[in-house]
Amino acid sequence: MKNNLKNNKTNANIYIPLNGKIEEITQLTGDVRLFKIKTETPIDYVPGQFFMLSVWGAGEVPISVASLPEKNGTIELCIRKTGIVTSAIHSLKTGQSIGLRGPYGNGFPIDISKGRDVILVAGGIGIAPLRPLIQQFIKNHRKAGKVTLLYGSRTPDEIIFRDEVEEWEESGIAVALTVDKGNDNWKGNVGLVTGLWPEVRTDFKEAVAYICGPDVMIKAAMRDLFFLGMPDERIITTLEAHMKCGVGKCGHCYIGPQYICTDGPVFSYKEIKEQSILK
């Protein structure tokens, strides 16, 4: 997938993080928080790109942007506590500084969705990278195409952006939620997100899909959509990998001949098949 932004061709040391300030922290679910970070000068980025966030003493971690760029230079990043670095980020408080490098990666291709229906498939924290896409679709007042969001979580309590999902619905996005395991208050669907295909009132052959979630879910969703007649190059996903540099040097995210960080993280099903990326 081609890069939407030009490479930084300066001589500056690409490994030096910029200083960001945490403006706001929102607890979304038990282990997920949304961090609003302000940089001194606004940084331009597109949905699907990521930043290397760094906490000194703990290390760096790649996090996809969860918002559209703002003129005042704030970036929203949605972070689940899973390892050493993310735990360190969670221990930070409003007003404290955090390092960030980026944006890196190619970002979602938006043009291909022009005049087409859009299906968004999210699993768990996978909703975060899709959030700016949704925001963009709402912002552009898409009239031509219909946007459908299929979103699966583990439990009802782990549905991230639950309030926003309602807002999105109000703005005209068709939403179908499901959980792996319900509770007493849950009256919605229970099961895999790929069980929600019947909810989509769209011609699969003409639509575009953006998928983000765990590898198993991505694989299943892509296979299903392909089977349902969607062309390879319009099935878009974003992948996750172990990364240390974010700029195609450290080698950790190398899969096939591709680096997830520089050639991705957004790939079409076509690329994934040709380069045998997801095995």
């Binding site: 000194w56 003493g57 703990a58 290390g59 240390k244 540099c245 040097k249 450290c250 080698g251 950790h252």
Partner: peptide, 10 residues
């Protein structure tokens, strides 16, 4: 071979 890892030491 070019791979590396990064670690912080306080």
């Amino acid at each position: 071979c070019t791979c590396f890892t990064v670690t912080d030491r306080a």
